[in-house]
Simulated scan of single mutants.
Amino acid sequence: MPSLRIACFHLNQLGDLVFSLPALLALGRGFPKAQIISVARPPHRELLLLSGLVHNVVERPRGQLISKLKMVSALRSMKLDLAVLFSTSLGTAILAWMAHPREKAGFGKRGLAYRAEKIGPPSVANNLRLVEALGCRVEKRDYVGLVKLDESVRCRVRDLLMHAGIGESTPYAVISPAASGRRAIKEWTSEGFAAVAERLADDLDLVPVLVGTEADEVVAGLSEKIVDLRGKTSIIELAALLEGAHVFVGIDSGVMHLAAAVGTPVAALFGPTDPAITGPMGEGHKIVQSDVPCLACMKTSCREPLCMQRITPDAVIESVAMCVSEEKNV
């Protein structure tokens, strides 16, 4: 009898992908003879395959209709038994329907053989609720340790750091200021991050390493002490860079969750989002928040996000120092 073929349709953002890893683990244990296929964006392919949680990755292209039809054709040829939809988007639902699986599981209300209630934003808890609806037993409820790295990835990152003037024994901190384009409300000030970078170097003897996109150019230009590695790593190389860092400093973002997943202490700046729902998982992390009544409002836009604006560099550095001190004492 052929094994089950299960396709998992992931959300597009990095953090949401990390949120799905415990569910993939439970799915594999619940269906040990199944072939699990991830449908995900191309940059996430290597992370998923190295995790050992999936057998194959079908890349989900952006935009072009012809590319999407080719993807659907590839999925149809696999004769899927089950499609698991971590995404609630209409586009994902249409693609899953076109792939012709025997059954579908998701958070919707129609056309699903198995369904779960989605509570709040995408989260590990929501994804685990979905695989539990499939009858899977959940033994691990966090993503820590589920991002796997091999020595070739670590070697590439060591070479990158060497070319940037950071030797193997040089301690560094990774700074990630930006969120996805739709969630700019979560961002702190460029001046604040630049001030933190200066103090990482002067007070804590940590080289500040900046990661992110071109949108973070302002931060890079405000401090001469920043080593700018924006756009110079793949997702899996970014994971290796984070693994080697003494601490991560940044906002609620996919990069923050990736840092926590590889076991790096996180000093995370939170304002409109709730760390009880989307905070970093694992031990040794510190949450930095201001004292405003509208904290954790969960809004996606705000004319004057005081919750982030009132966070001070002093508060951030204090949390970073605590992370580093606790790491040394472990």
Rank of each mutant, 00 (worst) to 15 (best):
V330Q: 13
K328C: 09
P305K: 09
N329R: 15
N329F: 09
T300K: 15
R310N: 11
T300G: 13
E327Q: 15
M298Y: 10
A321C: 05
T312R: 01
S301W: 12
V324E: 06
V330T: 11
E327A: 15
C323D: 03
M322P: 01
Q309E: 04
Q309K: 15
V324N: 00
E327K: 15
A315L: 06
V324W: 01
V316D: 02
C323P: 06
I311L: 09
R303L: 13
E304Y: 07
R303E: 09
S301T: 13
C307V: 02
S301I: 07
M298C: 11
E318C: 09
K299S: 12
T312L: 06
E318N: 10
T300A: 10
L306F: 11
I311F: 01
R310Q: 12
M308Q: 05
S319Q: 04
S319T: 05
V320Y: 04
R310T: 07
V320C: 05
S319V: 01
I311N: 01
A315I: 04
V316P: 02
V316I: 06
I317A: 07
E304L: 10
S325F: 11
A321T: 08
M322T: 09
E326R: 14
R303I: 07
S325N: 08
V320P: 05
P305Y: 07
V320N: 05
A321S: 15
M298Q: 15
S319K: 04
M298T: 12
M308D: 01
V316G: 01
V316K: 00
C307Y: 03
S301A: 13
E304N: 09
E326T: 05
V330H: 13
V324M: 03
D314N: 07
P305V: 13
E326G: 08
P305F: 05
V324P: 02
K328F: 07
M322V: 08
T300Q: 15
C323E: 02
N329Y: 02
M308A: 01
E327C: 14
S301H: 12
P305T: 11
R303G: 15
R303F: 12
V316M: 03
Q309L: 14
D314P: 04
I317H: 05
V330D: 12
E304V: 10
E327P: 12
E326S: 11
L306G: 04
S301C: 05
V316T: 00
I311H: 00
E326K: 14
A315Q: 11
P305G: 04
S301G: 09
T312C: 02
Q309Y: 11
E304C: 06
A321K: 09
K328Q: 12
T300R: 13
M322F: 02
